[in-house]
Design a protein around this nucleic acid. Structure first.
Lengths: 335, 335
DNA sequence: ATGAAAGCGCTAACAT
DNA sequence: ATGTTAGCGCTTTCAT
């Protein structure tokens, strides 16, 4: 069923049907109701591909994230989806599985699909990203990372200060040997700011970092467990506290420590970062750094909407703040 | 930059450019390389809208889920995405927020966008769903729910038996007063099978269900906490065990019990359902019913692919099995 | 206010 | 093997 059929059934021209659908105020009331009648009866659905080919607006936004199954990403996508849908946009979702090439491949698909804009959570920015940013002419927003070229606006997490703050908190509790469980292997950028925050806190308090207390891996619980094990079995005095770059790692670390007959927080304090919703529910409740990931998605979507409406306007990056949550998995070091 | 421009630059016709892109074997090697040269230099990206308008294939699959931020949904979407991307399809993602009307609205958008197929995790099937299934002519797959009309294939979770099995396990441990924390308020269908499984187990062992021990709510931790509280404060003897319809509810219930000075599992056993990945990591580790949600997404996507390739073939529903995981949050009832 | 016709960028049948 | 041409289903001038 196409527009021409509707036109014939209503005894009008294609153009009139199109007007009834898109700008009924331009058509006489009688014809409007006559056409609408037919529209109802037939259950006509306009072919948006055809419309979009003409109008050059697809109301489609391409979104790339490393994964979906991780709470923080899922929350963020939920925020993006909400705002975008609210504004009449649909989202084309893809996962890069931590591979920058995959991400670029999707950028290309998005471009061919004529998306109106792109939101991306990059793993690692390659030179080809820059080329794409410069050439595509598409409205873009980055999450969690800065565009070295300075043309694409970003939504950033204040990981450096969040981590520094938490580690200083541990230092204030009297801890000196503080382990760092990172995620650097897969996602360098996510790890970097946290690692630097950790080091900054130590240096500020005159504590020398020890390689054996620092690990890097991925987001998995298995890795968190093994990382804690590696640290725990390393030569030298045991750490009295652990900062994990994500809550999941922290949870896995606590599990390992518990199995070693070591209780948290009495023997070892453990702090995470993310504040996933169950962090306050489990026991011991997790001391962690809270970020509003849902909101970060909302901000990213709104930033993109802004960019699309006023392409030339210079936009500020948005920094997502943190809150330190002191809960049950940390306490003062034993004398 | 359009195809015509490429044609001009390469000194050939539009049709030849199209052939070089879509079926180079039909073009002489010299022209292929000449055109490809130009394609490279210009960084030409074909407008897929135009192609799709002609070929009537968008390689787009519409996916609707109630939410994204819940682990189980996110895992499932990850499975869908993986298979679909692997097969050259992209996914158009929407969330219904537990509203059947929203879901139908997206079905309509999908249809207009000319998607090649739809995967939906319905909250509640209305009559209009049936109408859509019958009229749209689109390849469809349902998750977690049966099509009453019997035309749309489904991927189902064996919630009835999973729950029954787990509750029988609790009964075998000697528990008789077993609470049920349900999710029925928002998603009737998800709750129904679990509730029936619970009742079936009780009835099989001659235990009369008690209204005061059964609640219904949503997926949130807050609700799980309040539900446990309601049950705990109800008139009558305290339950010795709790079956929660999801792990999240179980975790929240454990938190409430702990705050009441009640230890799990010594005083009260608690079992969940889902086996979210941290279920084995937290303490006490959670006795639960395991489902492979990622795989359910894979199955749904493959079922849809099958349906799209052979539209008339009658397809069997797929049942996702369960595994009972006996862990630390349950034990035999105290004598 | 309405209709006729051109055109969006591509594919595919047909002709050469 | 290559080019010409007619659509795909819509929107949007431009006439009337």
């Amino acid at each position: 069923m196409k527009m021409e059929d509707i036109a014939r059934l209503a005894g009008v021209s294609k153009a009139t049907v199109s007007r009834v659908i898109n700008s009924p105020e331009q058509v006489s009331p009688q014809l409007v109701s006559r056409v609408e009648q037919v529209l109802k009866e037939t259950g006509y659905a306009p072919n948006l591909l055809a419309r979009e080919l003409v109008t050059k607006q697809t109301h489609l936004i391409g979104v790339v994230v490393p994964q979906i199954g991780i709470d923080t990403f899922a929350e963020m996508i939920e925020g993006i989806t909400h705002v975008l849908n609210q504004n009449g946009y649909n989202l084309l979702l893809a996962t890069s599985r931590d591979q920058p090439e995959e991400e670029l491949r999707y950028f290309d698909v998005f471009r061919k699909k004529q998306v109106d804009g792109i939101i991306s959570f990059p793993t690692l920015l390659l030179e080809r990203h820059q080329t794409f940013f410069a050439r595509s002419g598409l409205p873009l927003v980055l999450v969690s990372q800065l565009d070295p070229g300075g043309t694409v606006p970003s939504v950033l997490y204040d990981d450096f200060n969040g981590t520094r703050d938490m580690v200083e908190y541990l230092l204030a509790l009297g801890h000196r040997r503080i382990a760092y469980l990172g995620v650097g292997q897969h996602n360098k950028v996510i790890d970097q700011a946290r690692r630097e925050g950790y080091l900054a806190a130590l240096s500020r308090h005159g504590v020398a970092p020890e390689e054996r207390l620092m690990t890097q891996g991925d987001f998995s619980l298995q890795y968190g467990y093994r990382a804690m094990q590696t640290v725990w079995q390393s030569e030298g005095e045991k750490p009295t506290a652990v900062f994990a770059a994500t809550d999941r790692l922290a949870l896995a670390a606590i599990q390992y420590l518990r199995e070693q007959g070591c209780s948290v927080p009495e023997d070892v304090s453990v702090a995470g970062l993310d504040d996933m919703d169950i962090a306050a529910t489990v026991h011991p409740s997790l001391t962690t750094v809270h970020y509003d990931y849902y909101n970060s998605g909302v901000q990213a979507a709104e930033l993109l909407l802004l960019r699309m409406r006023r392409p030339q306007e210079r936009l500020e990056n948005i920094m997502i703040g943190y809150q330190r949550k002191e809960r049950g998995s940390t306490c003062a070091v034993k004398k």
